[in-house]
């Protein structure tokens, strides 16, 4: 069996006798394999992985809340820029066409194209914005050391559920493929929004790395 550097201890058979368990608040069960660990007294900066399946359970980092909130705010502002500035410009035979993400979405107005527009708008703009707002709302007060807002738990639960559906990074790869497909028939240049979007992807990845589910839920209590 592989071993992982883990600061957490697993619960042994003797400890698990009724009444002998540590307080439930100090325990953490791996969400993927249900293995029980004791998470009490982790040192600052420690990362704990599941002893059985190896996924990351806890990152004990007290400055992470402020970092997550500031990155989420950054991403929010970049998203507004990415959506409204020109994204791609196309030149062919004297014709010029410049689109922003907003224009791209509103350009579709019939049948299948409209459904596609809804999907793109949702995955690229609306769900990521909703997720960022939920994170800022839920974690903002924690970063300032204040008590959580009302509904903060619902907001964070929502942010967690939305994660697989925010597809900004996939969109960027899609843009690259589209650029190369068009390159044969026209000259395509990227606008400022393309770079805003690329930056947004990096900031989002960094932010998601810093989110520790365990610490946030504990702080939201």
């Amino acid at each position: 069996m592989r071993s992982f550097p883990a600061a957490v201890k697993t619960i042994s058979e003797e400890e698990a006798l009724p009444n002998a368990l540590p307080p439930l608040r100090d325990l953490v069960a791996c969400p993927q394999c249900d293995t029980l660990h004791n998470a009490a007294r982790l040192p600052q900066g420690a990362r704990a992985h599941c002893k059985r399946c190896g996924i990351r359970l806890i990152t004990e980092n007290r400055t992470a809340f402020a970092q997550v909130v500031s990155l989420a705010l950054t991403a929010f502002v970049m998203m507004l820029a990415a959506v409204s500035f020109p994204f791609l410009e196309l030149n062919v035979a004297g014709h010029h066409n410049s689109i922003s993400v907003l224009q791209a979405i509103t350009a579709f107005n019939d049948g299948i194209a409209l459904l596609l527009a809804f999907a793109v708008a949702g995955f690229i703009v609306l769900l990521p914005l909703l997720r960022l707002s939920a994170i800022i709302y839920a974690i903002g007060p924690l970063a300032r050391g204040q008590a959580p807002r009302r509904g903060a738990k619902t907001a964070f639960g929502l942010a967690e559920a939305l994660q697989p559906w925010s597809m900004a990074e996939i969109f960027i790869v899609g843009v690259t493929v589209a650029l190369i497909k068009v390159a044969g028939i026209a000259t395509v240049t990227t606008g400022p929004a393309f770079w805003a979007f690329s930056g947004l992807v990096l900031v989002t990845i960094l932010k998601d790395q810093l989110i520790c589910r365990f610490s946030i839920w504990q702080a939201l209590e």
Binding site: M167, I170, G174, V182
Partner: peptide, 16 residues
């Protein structure tokens, strides 16, 4: 989802 996005971008961009 890449290909879906490619189609969406192309059909928004190439309307000449």
């Amino acid at each position: 989802m890449i290909d879906v996005f490619v189609v969406a971008i192309l059909s928004a961009l190439v309307q000449l």
